[in-house]
């Protein structure tokens, strides 16, 4: 390459993607070993607990999938893994809702974090059909009742014409592959966005009084204390 021409790596798509990825998420942002001092409350654990529940959901679901949808009706071991699947789903929603409440009351979308909130909210919304298709893949009375009841809402919106709750094969495919893929993809995007932007700093007490003093307080707090720990990016325990 001549000195005046573009160096080859400038034209490489691979190099371009690598540079952008590293700029957005350098390794110490992706896997931080420090986090802001204000991250000091039990309320911060519900994101990672939701993640833990999701891991259990997927692990137990994988075991059920390896043996096929009929196994758990006849095997007590299968029934145990079905129970594990059910309770981990209950835990997933349990922790996700508390996480949601916590992040709402922190107004955690501040400071350019709207996409973090939005990916989280969409995850919750997509998790609902992920669970529903599971309920109707059970091959028992529950599945009969839930599918024949829920079909009316699907049909009324026209969705039922291509998403047929009474077609077990279709629902099973959605439940074991398509919707988990969507949930895991959304959660991955959510977590990476959290890593990129860091955990939202506390609301300034002055936000509630005079806006003029808000900036002053922010500067004062930050300048006076920016010494301990890593000077690196803001980080969070999901």
């Amino acid at each position: 390459m001549t000195a005046t021409g573009q160096p080859p790596e400038e034209r490489s798509w691979t190099v371009g993607v690598r540079r952008r990825a590293l700029a957005a998420l350098p390794p110490d942002k992706l896997l931080p070993d420090s986090q802001p001092s204000y991250v000091a409350s039990w309320i911060y654990i519900f994101g990672v607990l939701s993640l833990g529940a999701l891991v259990t959901v997927i692990a137990s679901g994988t075991i059920l999938a390896t043996k096929g949808p009929g196994w758990w009706h006849t095997s007590s071991l299968g029934h145990f893994f079905n129970s594990l699947h059910l309770w981990s789903v209950e835990l997933f929603f349990f922790f996700m809702v508390i996480h949601l409440w916590a992040k709402f009351w922190m107004s955690a979308w501040r400071g350019g974090r709207a996409r973090v909130w939005m990916t989280g909210a969409i995850t919750f919304i997509v998790a609902i059909p992920a669970a529903l298709t599971g309920y109707i893949s059970q091959q028992n009375f529950d599945a009969q009742w839930i599918s024949t009841q829920a079909k009316d809402a699907m049909n009324a919106t026209g969705i039922g014409s291509f998403f047929n709750l009474l077609n077990f094969g279709q629902m099973y495919g959605y439940h074991v592959f398509l919707l988990p893929l969507a949930v895991v993809g959304l959660v991955a995007a959510h977590v990476l966005l959290v890593r990129k932007h860091g955990v939202v700093p506390p609301l300034l007490l002055s936000d509630l009084t005079t806006p003029a003093s808000a900036t002053a307080t922010a500067r004062g707090t930050a300048a006076g204390t920016a010494s301990a720990g890593s000077p690196g990016p803001v980080s969070e325990a999901e």
Partner: peptide
């Protein structure tokens, strides 16, 4: 309010993700 939350220049504590 949004701008004030963009960045944290304050102290950090050790943490093992």
């Amino acid at each position: 309010i949004d701008a004030a939350a963009r960045h944290w220049d304050g102290p950090y504590r050790p943490y093992d993700l």
